[in-house]
Write a protein that binds this DNA or RNA. Structure first.
Lengths: 343, 343
DNA sequence: CTGTTAGCGCATTCAA
DNA sequence: TTGAATGCGCTAACAG
């Protein structure tokens, strides 16, 4: 006498066919209720189907759907390094917003490597993502994304490409202008890797503002490092050990600024008294450093929003779309610390 | 006279069928060369196929493959908040390692919300991921993952579940013991949210070590906050404003410790002189804070490695697998700063 | 060594 | 309002 071991081990997940069989309808009807259309379903039938789905603990297979629909209901994000605070915040913002819109997020970390980046892009595209947002190490050499809408968070994209950018040049100029307003005259630049996103524009902003003011912009005022705390520390050490020490620094990212602050402490250079600092990004890193960083703040929420809609609604009024940035004053620039802000 | 506008607009990406036609072979042969098997292909044929692929710029469709193979060649990661430095580093590590192993990474940010977490898990599973690693807000209520191998980075998983954990209790005890070695007697605990991963074990370690030493563990020595800089700042303010101020704090994460340091500066409490601090995580955050944080360091690389292999090789010698942590001494505990380390 | 073919699970057109 | 049937692109038996 065989016992009922049929439903002991539900080895395979239930499919639409199983549900149809149990509810005694066709598979099409199951689709109709799952998707609320495109054909109507009688209330009583719907109830039966729902019950069967419940009973079988049915979950639609997103992959089969993706194949059929040519869309995975997913967007891809490729960044040079997610562990960088700024990119982490961007990933978080995109994950949350994409989810809210019914999309999953595929993340590709390029590990600061151009070949890795190419490979990540190809992988994501082959996964039928509905859109790709990328902060590229080199927009010119990014892999072909074919029909996948792609938005670059970068100035350097080619004419036809979608891009959402922030006003890097203007922000940098604003930062430098603020420093000049504090009476600083040797304003150094702690810059990012040559070719990295935003770097050359921020450099331009720095240079232009100084030239306009008749202040020096020589190579002895420039240092360069990776976008990392460690990189900022080393470049900071370098900058602070030069013959004629700068009295202010504009730094191209918060994480580098954290490194610079550490280097300054190490050498007994007091910020902001001996060295005023303004950085770019304005992540949470800038709020709790010592001293808190005056920074050009990127509105990550809005950037993510714009990028997502550009990619999903397949368009942008005009590309590039430039998002304004804002100088947020804290303590590192030498402004009087307002109590309300230093938190 | 119709012009050759056939290949003007390659509207659709080339499929295996197109390649087969162009190379004048069957679709199976194309598969064999793409996958290097399972059947051998004559060298000359292979060359023809390769040429056709090149010509058509053919890319295999990962979704179709996933449907057929019941595997997307992808792993999922769900964390409470990617913008947290620790989780960001974990995501990066996993993305890189997964990629190296030929897998993509699907990231789900739970946004510190248990319902969001459930939904993210269901979404990932429906995308046919080959494995899921999750740092859950509540392992008991995580969605059913069916046949998808799942590894929890958490102590509280149920018996049958795979989990990779660090020695939270032991690490905390070690931290507290170090503080006791510095002659501190009122050692507070700046803890995480009730129920968050690792929190209760770290609390236990703190308590046990103090009790053994006959030191106080009262509620007036405990504060609690989210895993964030802002949370740590507020809890720190609270702790430092109490009647009998602690002379040391064990903090359950680096980001919270950053907040605590800011709070201490705000109140003129000098670290480590007035307040010794040891935190948990040991991310890059701990290296460049002021002062650099002595911390219990989690070997993220090894954690990711163990989690990935657990999930992909479907197993673990014994679960939970406990990974040791290590006390890394810097300046915040009051040890003499060694020059080599303070970088 | 190569070709034929049957699905993977789902959405949808076309008939009923 | 429902059902039958087709195909999305790919793998891998199975048969030459």
């Amino acid at each position: 006498v065989p016992k009922q071991d049929a439903q002991e081990q539900p080895k395979r997940a239930a499919t639409r066919t199983d549900v149809a069989r149990l509810a005694e309808v066709s598979t099409a009807v199951v689709s109709y209720v799952v998707n609320n259309g495109p054909r109507p379903v009688a209330a009583s039938t719907r109830t039966r189907v729902l019950a069967a789905m419940e009973e079988l603990d049915y979950r639609p297979n997103a992959v089969a759907r993706a194949l059929r629909m040519r869309s995975a209901q997913a967007v891809g994000l490729v960044v040079p390094d997610v562990s960088n605070t700024y990119f982490g915040a961007l990933a978080r913002e995109l994950s949350v917003q994409a989810f809210t819109a019914g999309y999953a997020l595929l993340l590709g970390d390029a590990d600061n490597d151009i070949d890795r980046e190419r490979a990540q892009v190809e992988s994501l595209v082959s996964h039928q993502i509905d859109g790709l947002v990328i902060v590229s190490l080199d927009p010119a050499s990014v892999a072909e994304t074919g029909t996948t809408p792609t938005v670059f968070l970068d100035q350097r994209s080619r004419p036809g490409q979608l891009s959402v950018i922030v006003d890097d040049r203007g922000g940098a100029a604003q930062a430098v202008s603020h420093l000049i307003g504090h009476g600083r005259t040797r304003i150094a630049l702690l810059s990012g890797p040559v070719g990295a996103p935003g770097v050359s524009e921020r450099e331009q902003g720095w240079r232009q503002e100084l030239e306009t003011a008749g202040l020096p912009t020589g190579d002895d005022l420039i240092a360069r490092s990776e976008f990392s705390r460690a990189g900022g520390f080393e470049a900071g050490q370098d900058l602070l050990s030069r013959a004629q020490r700068p009295d202010a620094v504009f730094v191209t990212s918060d994480v580098q600024a954290l490194g610079l602050l550490a280097a300054a402490r190490r050498r007994g250079v007091e910020v902001p008294r001996d060295l005023a600092v303004v950085s770019f990004d304005g992540t949470e890193d800038a709020l709790f450093s010592d001293p808190p960083l005056t920074a050009i703040e990127q509105p990550i929420h809005r950037i993510a929003e714009a990028a997502l809609s550009a990619v999903l609604e397949k368009g942008l009024e005009h590309s590039p779309l430039t998002i304004p940035v804002e100088l947020v004053v804290r303590d590192s620039c030498g402004c009087e610390s307002t109590d309300a802000e230093s938190r």
